[in-house]
């Protein structure tokens, strides 16, 4: 039982990342009709916002320490962060320690600008082109973006730890009446799940309860009619692209302490997220979220030794297997709408 609960927690955690990326993908597809294969790259850029802010906060000056030598035997230089120099080791150190949560604030404007530039500079020229053209150009863009990141940050993963307060893990089992150490779950992964829930809730609330959101939803349902009412729907859709980019970016920031960011991480998530979108139903926001969590949990269960002993290798194909079954039985996905990518 404890193993099952642990895998459900794992699945919710994985599903959080899938759902956040798939949500952004669906927002872009639902509003602009663009299949954006560069969306994983936005997630990756978000993670590198955390790396960048961490480096900015760690800007240091060097002093020579005559008591130490470097690897060549020369007097060693000691680096002191300006923040620690200005505000003292405790306050300065605390600011540096909280660089990942602070990076959320840093990432929002950055990702809005990246999203805006991406949409106005390239993607808008492909609105009326075939989906195949859109996929090719956005996939190419994703490769360009990851190579740019690799050029500046290198190919190796860069450790970006969570604040000290969130390191370690929670003995979840004790809370549920199990033996100590039966169900241990890292604090930051719980934070990530809660964060994802808040962001998903905020996006839905924004679309449901604001006038802007209402117009966007109307535009998603019938773009032409909304345009005939004199509303500049294109402008709103461009803003939605920026919001989707910001959602992907924030998901990337918060993911940085879970797995050290590397230039390829966007691609690792992209294909899975597309499967999530298709399973959820193209253009369906609730479908994307539902499918994200569903596939995350299924993937976790498929990794259990008990399951793998019966079906070896199932952990590597489960998501695609479920996608095939769902698309055979429900061709529009779990919550897909009629007429989307049809005919």
């Amino acid at each position: 039982m404890d193993a099952i609960i642990l895998q459900i927690l794992n699945g919710l955690d994985k599903g959080s990342a899938y759902a956040l990326i798939a949500l952004g993908l669906t927002l872009i597809f639902g509003t602009l009709g663009v299949v954006n294969f560069a969306h994983g790259a936005l997630f990756m850029i978000g993670a590198f916002c955390a790396v960048t802010l961490s480096r900015i906060l760690n800007f240091s000056f060097e002093t020579i320490d005559p008591g130490k030598t470097d690897f060549l035997g020369n007097p060693a230089t000691v680096e002191t962060a300006y923040l620690e120099h200005w505000f003292g080791p405790e306050v300065g150190g605390a600011i540096i320690d909280w660089s990942v949560p602070l990076a959320i604030l840093f990432s929002i404007p950055v990702m809005l600008v990246v999203g805006f530039v991406m949409e106005r500079g390239l993607i808008k020229h492909f609105y009326k082109r075939e989906h195949a053209d859109q996929i090719l150009v956005t996939f190419g863009l994703a490769i360009v973006l990851q190579e740019i990141i690799k050029y500046f940050y290198g190919a190796n993963p860069i450790p970006t730890p969570a604040p000290d307060a969130f390191r370690g893990s929670l003995d979840f089992g004790v809370l549920l009446g199990f033996d100590p150490n039966a169900i241990i779950y890292p604090y930051w992964r719980l934070v990530y799940f809660l964060f994802a829930a808040v962001i998903i809730g905020a996006v839905f609330a924004f679309l449901r309860f604001t006038t802007f959101g209402m117009v966007v939803r109307a535009g998603m349902a019938d773009r032409e009619t909304v345009g005939l009412l004199g509303i500049n729907i294109d402008k709103r859709f461009t803003i939605m692209f920026g919001i989707a980019a910001a959602v992907a970016g924030m998901a990337g920031v918060m993911y940085a302490p879970i797995n050290s960011p590397n230039y390829h991480m966007g691609m690792d998530f992209l294909v899975l997220s597309f499967v999530v979108v298709v399973v959820g139903g193209m253009g369906s926001l609730p479908g994307a979220v539902l499918a994200g969590f569903l596939l995350g949990i299924l993937e976790s269960f498929a990794s259990m030794n008990e399951v793998k002993s019966i079906l070896p290798g199932i952990d590597q194909i489960i998501i695609y297997l479920v996608a095939i079954i769902i698309l055979l039985t429900r061709p529009r996905g779990l919550m897909g709408r009629k007429g989307v990518m049809e005919g």
Binding site: N10, G11, D13, A182, I258, S300
Partner: peptide
């Protein structure tokens, strides 16, 4: 190609 090993680490615990 695995990136998140949490579901492989979790069974180690017990």
């Amino acid at each position: 190609a695995a990136t998140d090993f949490s579901s492989y680490i979790a069974p180690v615990l017990n």
